[in-house]
Design a protein around this nucleic acid. Structure first.
Lengths: 179, 179
DNA sequence: TCGCGAAGTTTAGTATAACTAAACAAAATG
DNA sequence: CATTTTGTTTAGTTATACTAAACTTCGCGA
């Protein structure tokens, strides 16, 4: 019965150190440490004491609802390499297809280019994180440098390619999700 | 932390003896007996095993929702005396105003009478438990004896008074609740 | 970068309680 | 009433709930 992570998360949300929580519950910090790593399991009465100090009922504690993730980090990234095309796509928000916006980070090597995307409903916004790119929308070509951004409706064919020798990185957001 | 009664109730609802439950959980019937009387408390893991066998999650188990009361007894009664008017009202279902029917028991002393009730939307039903009454609905007067009942729409003024020397008791139900 | 204090982990316990097996008692049934 | 079923009690064993204190890691400010 793995409850350690939940206790730790509650404690951190409540802004307490293990020692502070231990003092409030009249336990030891060593024990709190062991609980949080599932090295031991508290009695039901002790669990209730702990949760009382953390402003949570046992009922809520054993709720199976998964908290919605708000912050995403390096370990959340899904990478797709297209080495022959000279680019790599990093999906930085997993399951973003279920939402309204889908952000990716596009990495273009020298001469790297993503295939032209056919017209479709929606919009895309991009911000050049590093390097510079050539953005093609319909018949128009634009050079976009680091720190600059772009924003267009996707009803025309569009594509992006690296315009320099250095690797280029673009934060690229599509709504609705299409990547 | 008193959980014994909840475990016992679940077991009985599931139709198991203590021995059957013990066998399913790989515990002893003696231990189940002790748990149900709060003589001891299970580890969280053991509690989960038990609840798995009883088709209940820990989450539900620790729900604080009060089971809806179905049967009401003497101790549930709320009494209002109107001694100068010679009657007493007993609300026999607490919080019935939150439901569709509101039952009371009206007790009328000799010469006791409830004030005329103004017309309103709804219906009332009554059953004379003891003694006899005069029921007035609009301009009509009815004598209703023990064992007889009445049922009318409340769009006319209505009232009840005792018609004899003995105490009268009426089970009186209004929908929607108005008493 | 380093030193120090804060925060967390580990270790080696103690004592008690989680759980047992079996005898006993109460309740139910034919 | 006798027997079976169901629940309770008793006297344990052993594992674990929880401890105190030493040790390690982390974070922060100079």
């Amino acid at each position: 019965m793995q409850i350690g992570n939940k206790i730790k998360r509650l404690r951190l949300e409540y802004g307490l150190t293990q020692e502070e929580l231990a003092d409030r519950c009249e336990l030891t910090k060593g024990y709190i440490s062991q609980l949080e790593r599932d090295l031991t399991s508290p009695s039901i009465a002790t669990l209730k004491d702990i949760l009382d100090c953390l402003g949570c009922s046992i009922h809520e504690f054993f709720s199976e609802k998964k908290p919605e993730q708000i912050v995403f980090k390096a370990q959340d990234v899904f990478v797709k390499d297209a080495e022959e095309k000279g680019y790599r796509i990093k999906w930085i928000v997993p399951n973003a297809q279920k939402m309204e916006m889908e952000p990716i980070i596009l990495e273009l090597m020298e001469n790297g280019e993503v295939e032209e995307d056919d017209p479709h409903q929606g919009e895309e916004f991009g911000y050049v994180l590093s390097g510079s790119i050539i953005l093609t929308v319909g018949k128009e070509r634009h050079k976009v440098k680091k720190g600059e951004c772009f924003h267009y409706k996707t009803n025309l064919p569009h594509s992006i390619k690296n315009s320099g020798k250095k690797k280029a990185q673009v934060l690229w957001i599509s709504t609705p999700p299409t990547f």
